[in-house]
Design a protein around this nucleic acid. Sequence first.
DNA 1: ACGACCTTAACGGTGCGTTAAAGTTT
DNA 2: CAAACTTTAACGCACCGTTAAGGTCG
Lengths: 261, 261
Amino acid sequence: MTTRYRIGEFARLSGVTSKTLRFYDQIGIFRPSTVDPLTRYRYYLPQQLEELASILALKGLGVSLAAVQNLAAKRGSPESKRKLVQELQRLRQNLEESIQTSARSLNYIDATLADLDLGTRPIPVVLKRRPAIPIASIRSKVRSYTEIDNLEWELLNALPSQSIGDLRGTLWHRCADSGSLEGEPFVALKQWVPARGFYDLKQLSAATLACAYSGPDDDSAEQAYDAVKRWMAIAGYRLAGPKREIYLENMLEIQFPLQAA
Amino acid sequence: MTTRYRIGEFARLSGVTSKTLRFYDQIGIFRPSTVDPLTRYRYYLPQQLEELASILALKGLGVSLAAVQNLAAKRGSPESKRKLVQELQRLRQNLEESIQTSARSLNYIDATLADLDLGTRPIPVVLKRRPAIPIASIRSKVRSYTEIDNLEWELLNALPSQSIGDLRGTLWHRCADSGSLEGEPFVALKQWVPARGFYDLKQLSAATLACAYSGPDDDSAEQAYDAVKRWMAIAGYRLAGPKREIYLENMLEIQFPLQAA
DNA sequence: ACGACCTTAACGGTGCGTTAAAGTTT
DNA sequence: CAAACTTTAACGCACCGTTAAGGTCG
């Protein structure tokens, strides 16, 4: 009297839907013990509940069905054990990261809710990855913004116009020890340009950036700076290099390079 | 000289791919400022970077594009603010839960890795939701398993056979105060049966269960019990009611009702 | 004969990634 | 003129849920 279950009952017993069982059969990850060749009804055995459980346990840990299939294929071999360990370690990594980012998001949501409660308009802050790009720049201590404008003008004039890319901006270095502020206007380069003592040729390094936008006025820029600072504090990131100001047509993009903290 | 960006450049500036921009255009969540009617080229304005940023910020918090669209539709209205707050609160909830389950999974993965390292074969444990079902049962203090078998036999004989469902098993009550153990064999009911003093008619309550399978022998059952106990301790759940033993053809399913802890 | 089951097939949903084939800008 | 861009269209992914239109079991 070896009981066989039809799909519906097996579904109820195992806790998944019959559609899921049909799907698992179709992709070959978990098949019924027998199939009636006439009616094509699927029949399952009690022992298969455990087999399915081992699949569901893995899936419950976040393993993809493809990976489960991979692992189940060569079950019992010593190689499979290594594979499993490897997969679980990958998973561990992912889980830790997802917990981190979830926690950051949670904090930020709370802060945003508090802002909304106070009626403050939240300024959107977004994360971006930027690749490294070649730039030409001039770095200098600055006393006024006019000085920066002058530096930039000189930089642009010193370079052959066909080498100048679309991206322009200023890097702001704050030296903790001296407390002094240095500005470094830069332009992206499309082509090689001759090295001269007058400007530096370097790379704007690849980075993850927290970004916000502002109008061209100081007030608006200050708000954007504050928004990014708050965002970083709340989300638990730290600054990792000079801040970047990107010039857009009557707009400014404020970028803070990030380091997980 | 109001600069317009073509899709590629706007994509680079904003940090999303041009495909994403086309997709957002298609679903109407974020459209280019102008489209050349001849070439159908999309053109974007610098100000749109901020508009897109506000969308990306929400998405970064885990809001679905549908929800973003919903929120963006009536932006500025006081109703939109309530909607936004509501959405953020829903999100907060989800994030907290996902952090919880991720943390549980993390612990369980670590334990599984430790087991694998020791060469122990991990017994799969899975979570299931079960609905309430009507049962008939007899509860009693027990000294031996034979007694349970007898009780079950009596129960089955006392009931009209056409009312007896497929599910049979035993509930195990452990009374903390007395330290005594009581067993309660039960059978699921397909139909109404007369109430008699001899057996109880009740509901097997709906529950979330941690489950494992074992063979019919005591040794195997003990291992399954231990596996579930360990799993619960590691994942941080607590027992919420009598344990359930489900009888399957030459197999046992061990079920522990759960309570988040 | 009735209801509760089972079958396959096909489309839907999320948020785009990935070709492919053809036209446009610099 | 060639390189680098753009367009639409269509399929793919993961993991099934959800009809729909029929055969089958007790």
